[in-house]
């Protein structure tokens, strides 16, 4: 865990209200694992006050990337940053996805909805490096919600796209596409990140298919360090339902431990 008060932005990319920032933050980059996140101060001022938790989208050498959608004031400010600007970044925070040795040579599904793809790119890359066969599913409402399409096409693994309106790829929900493929291909594991309703459905599908899965959860956070208990959520651990901290006990949890908000 490091606080880099001067992480320099070396590259920005944008597509509508989706943004990607690449940061030079050597200490953080060297320790980062897929599924971990950064706590980023979006402005030196006091409004908005809190740091914003953002998944590590990719990481190599001394650089980390974040990919996000503008959803409020904090992400709006972050989206206005330019190459050469500096950010105060804390990380890597939380635990990551399980990268198990038995994934080698196996198909591993990585299912992302919208900006939920953010942590799955880094994950898929690490899975591939470890000799597993990542199969990425990337869904959005419409084609403009799939800004990382090109990047995924060039990644060297299989990516399947879906749009709710049929403007690109499979016409329907990414959960429907993943379910269809899952029945055919019997993957060994599934990782998911996206809107709550999407992850809830995906968890049901995995349960029915007896497919082990992990999901990355999102929350407003106070500290990102496990100190304030502001991001707690009901999680079932060893048969007992408790409020656990998404920042420290997560943000990645096994599917069977998550109490979905619709339950």
């Amino acid at each position: 865990m490091f606080q880099d008060k001067n992480a320099r932005i070396i590259k920005t990319e944008s597509w509508g209200n989706y943004f990607l920032l690449r940061l030079a933050a050597a200490e953080i980059a060297q320790k980062s694992k897929p599924g971990q996140f950064l706590m980023i101060r979006v402005s030196p001022g006091l409004n908005p006050l809190l740091r914003r938790p953002l998944s590590i989208h990719d990481c190599s050498g001394s650089e980390v990337e974040i990919f996000f959608q503008v959803t409020g004031k904090g992400t709006e400010l972050l989206s206005q940053k330019k190459p050469g600007d500096h950010l105060d970044v804390l990380g890597p925070c939380g635990g990551g996805f399980s990268l198990l040795p038995e994934f080698k040579d196996k198909e591993i599904f990585c299912v992302g909805g919208g900006r939920g793809l953010a942590p799955l790119y880094f994950l898929a890359r690490e899975l591939q490096t470890a000799g597993a066969r990542p199969v990425v599913f990337y869904g959005g409402q419409t084609l403009s919600d799939l800004p990382l399409k090109k990047r995924l096409d060039e990644a060297g693994w299989e990516t399947n796209f879906s749009t709710d309106d049929g403007s690109f790829g499979f016409h329907g929900l990414v959960t429907q596409l993943a379910e269809k493929e899952l029945m055919k291909r019997k993957p060994s594991f599934l990782f998911g990140c996206g809107p709550e309703a999407m992850m809830t459905r995906l968890a049901e599908i995995c349960q029915q298919a007896v497919l082990p899965a992990e999901f990355s959860l999102e929350s407003i956070m106070g500290c990102g360090l496990g100190a304030c208990w502001g991001c707690s959520r009901k999680i079932k651990k060893n048969g007992e339902i408790k409020y656990l901290r998404i920042c420290q006990d997560g943000p990645v949890f096994p599917a069977e431990e998550i109490i979905w908000s619709g339950d």
Binding site: C228, C231, S232, K242
Partner: peptide, 24 residues
Amino acid sequence: REGNPPPRLAESPCGLINSIGLQG
């Protein structure tokens, strides 16, 4: 102690409102 149901944090201008409820 379990503390209060989420959400437990809300921002306001230059401020933070919490209802953590002393989980511990």
